[in-house]
Simulated assay, not measured.
Amino acid sequence: MTSITSPTAASGTAASATRTLLADGREMLYFDDRGTMSPDREAAADGRELPVRGPSGEVRYDALTGEWVAVAAHRQHRTHLPPADECPLCPSTPGRASEIPASDYDVVVFENRFPSLGPDFAAAPGAPAWGTRGIAGGRCEVVAFTPEHNGTFAGLGTQRVRTVIDAWAHRTEALSALPGVQQVFCFENRGQDIGVTLHHPHGQIYAYPYVTPRAAVMAAAAGQFHEASGGTATLTGDILAKERTDGSRMVAEGEFFSAYVPFAARWPLEIHLVPHRQVPDLAALTGPERDELAVLYPDLLGRLDGLYNSPTPYISAWHQAPVDPAMRRAGYLHLQLTSPRRAADKLKYLAGSEAAMGAFINDTTPEHVARLLRDVPTAPQPTT
């Protein structure tokens, strides 16, 4: 077990972290809430007999679209919706060893046992053409938000959310520095309707060996706007200013962040959470910015759940600038929070227009959705 200094601890408020290895050599990091550390942490070790890790899968180039596709057939055998007493993210007990050796923890990040990318590191091949394939290099990590099997991110409490934010920031900076990594993506899938395979509150982090299609399109638009402004303005910052001035789609505003339903929302429920100053990624946020985010972000999740009488499935996607310095100049961190739920008893499915053509049709109006979200009576978040 190795104590490490978080590269994002310049503010003096970052959570502490300790590093260890699982039985098959995968890396694991415990992130402790400020001022806490489980007393058995140093003694916790993974005593399981695990098979040797397999090689990385591959990426194949789609010459029709210019996009990379990861092929990871080994993921067909990954754990799928196990009962609570077999959950791999609950702490280990004397009678059952899980993926997490400690008997208690705050937040844990570890390499996925069934990764889409990695364990090898290699950038996608350059100058690709039809038939080009390469190693699916990179890293896939799991982020366990709490030792409690039941619950939601919105119910973690402000201090725990702050620890998760520090973990995201730490991993973003560390993964961005690894060989071949081109982009780091932190996200959470919540709900079986989204396709989760574990009920335990958790998220994931992908470190890609290429710039993803969505990020490439956004980076191109941002770069064009930045250049047209003479390098004095950013596209996301300009949109944020216009949304705040218009006001009809705003959901919440703080000192450092604002949230709104975007003008051209694609999904029935969609919220963008944007910092007031340009930062490329979560690692660049200051201590006070992280403190506000730890309050505002779960408030937005609570508003989603407050719309109906049952939990709302969602995808929480943190858009961070790719590693390429040219893309980072105009890159602007923001959260895209989406749900396919278009009514209490209806879901939007990606059918012909969306799935085949990428041409979205929204069954709700952004202004109406924003009004509904603003009107949700949210309860104060616990601080611990």
Rank of each mutant, 00 (worst) to 15 (best):
F257H: 10
G155D: 13
C140K: 00
G54T: 06
L178V: 07
E67N: 11
H272V: 14
R41Y: 07
F263E: 04
R26N: 06
E243Y: 05
H272N: 12
G306N: 12
M1R: 07
L300R: 00
T364S: 14
H334Q: 08
Y105D: 06
I271A: 01
C87Q: 02
G137P: 03
D363W: 10
A355N: 07
E289H: 00
Q76L: 15
D299I: 05
G306L: 08
T378L: 11
G57F: 06
L307P: 04
T5L: 10
A123T: 08
V323Y: 00
L235V: 04
V295L: 08
V59F: 09
G203P: 11
A44P: 02
T2A: 05
N309Q: 09
H199Q: 14
G306I: 11
D299Y: 14
P382E: 14
Y314S: 08
P119E: 06
R290E: 00
A379K: 13
V69G: 06
P298T: 08
E292N: 05
E367P: 03
R78T: 15
P83M: 07
G287L: 00
Y61C: 03
G47L: 10
T13L: 10
N309R: 09
N362F: 08
A344L: 12
S11L: 00
A379H: 09
G138T: 04
E111L: 11
